[in-house]
Design a protein around this nucleic acid. Structure first.
Lengths: 215, 215
DNA sequence: GTGAACAGACCAACCAGTCGGTCTTATTGT
DNA sequence: ACAATAAGACCGACTGGTTGGTCTGTTCAC
């Protein structure tokens, strides 16, 4: 039983396919190429997966499940909307370090998910979106955020800003994922907080402690 | 000679294919389906296009060419960085009304562009990115924008925020594209301007004249 | 020996692209 | 004025290669 699940053929296939999908797209990679790259056979593949589509689904699901879990925890841990939003964003950004290929595939190929799979993914996705939007609504209600913010669009703006990182973020880039997260938080809080909350620097204290802007 | 270029078969194919690609993806639509939907034939298609790939390229190119042109004009028209950024963003957002399907295909299927085509597209894309980044740099230099902004990442944040709209914007939605553009500009300027510039309300005057936030 | 894990030859479907041919319109020669 | 000719637009049966998936085994652990 030992050693099993790490070199598990199933996981090996997922890992390899993931990287291949990221580079060439779902339709740019054939099952034959995958099994050859892994060093197995058609039989091996279809022993573990019902179809190529299932592979695509698994990639989607592991990523969105992780993100949703992190957001749920952050949502329950913090009470102040500013802190809450900050935590959610930082967690979300950090995911790009762990799941960059998953995210790329997620946003590039989700259109090709079979309906049955799509429903499952969409549900989790919407939950995540709701957590962000709720945080903004709470922030408005308790007076930390500007009253004139449209919650949905602000939420989508934040989501877009962070999500887009999958198009340009490189682990080998000049900024660490932590720095990028801090920058995003800084931009978002400036955009969202009232001038009073901003100057009260409920959040800025920690930024001042360790200034991260160098250019 | 009249009536020609409107019902031009070539244009008709592009229009139809565009909508089909948007819904089912490039690989989810066959050439046969396209010609059937248009009411023509394989021969008709390949008389006007060298390949299916060329079709994909044309869709990419018409969109990015338009965007780049608009941004170039805005860039040359306005001198103050705040105004410049504002104009670029509003123009960019407006494109979603005109080219929503193009944009969807652009971001969903660009991975499948043949290298020769990809080079052409990437060039224009980078130019556009540079215009935004330059605007931010100028804003910092002339003191309108916060000195501690990292220009590249702020640029990518803005790009992401706006680009992401292709995932959720609907013409039939509750907010018009103009309202959404104003909201984005508001968020971005709050994020980017110095507190002094913000309170001087160099730009807020026009927002105050017509308040657009209703929720 | 029994079942799970894997191998690999095979298949049916599909799909981008081709090619010989037709129809329509413009051009030319007389 | 009009036949002859050329050219572009379009047709659709066909093809050659590819691809996801199957099926009959074989290996090996327990």
């Amino acid at each position: 039983m030992e050693g099993g699940f790490i070199t598990d053929l199933r996981n090996k296939i997922i890992q390899k396919a993931l990287l291949m999908f990221e580079k060439h797209g779902y339709h740019g990679v054939t099952v034959n190429q995958i099994v050859e790259s892994v060093g197995t056979s058609k039989g091996g593949f279809y022993h573990h997966f019902a179809s190529k589509d299932e592979l695509l689904f698994v990639i989607h699901d592991t990523f969105i499940t992780y993100v949703l879990e992190k957001a749920t925890i952050a949502n329950e841990t913090y009470k102040l909307p500013t802190k809450k939003l900050q935590a959610i964003i930082k967690d979300f950004v950090k995911v790009f370090d762990l799941y960059k290929p998953h995210i790329s595939v997620f946003y590039q190929e989700n259109i090709y998910l079979k309906p049955e799979y799509e429903i499952l993914i969409k549900k989790k996705r919407d939950q995540f979106k709701q957590i962000i939007i709720s945080a903004i609504r709470e922030g408005k209600e308790c007076g930390e955020f500007r009253k004139d913010l449209p919650v949905e669009i602000t939420g989508m703006a934040i989501l877009g800003m962070v999500n887009w990182a999958y198009k340009w973020y490189k682990q080998s880039g000049p900024k660490s994922i932590d720095e990028i997260g801090d920058i995003f938080v800084d931009l978002i809080l400036h955009a969202v907080l009232t001038v009073e909350s901003l100057s009260e620097s409920k959040y800025l204290d920690q930024l001042i402690e360790k200034p991260f802007f160098t250019n």
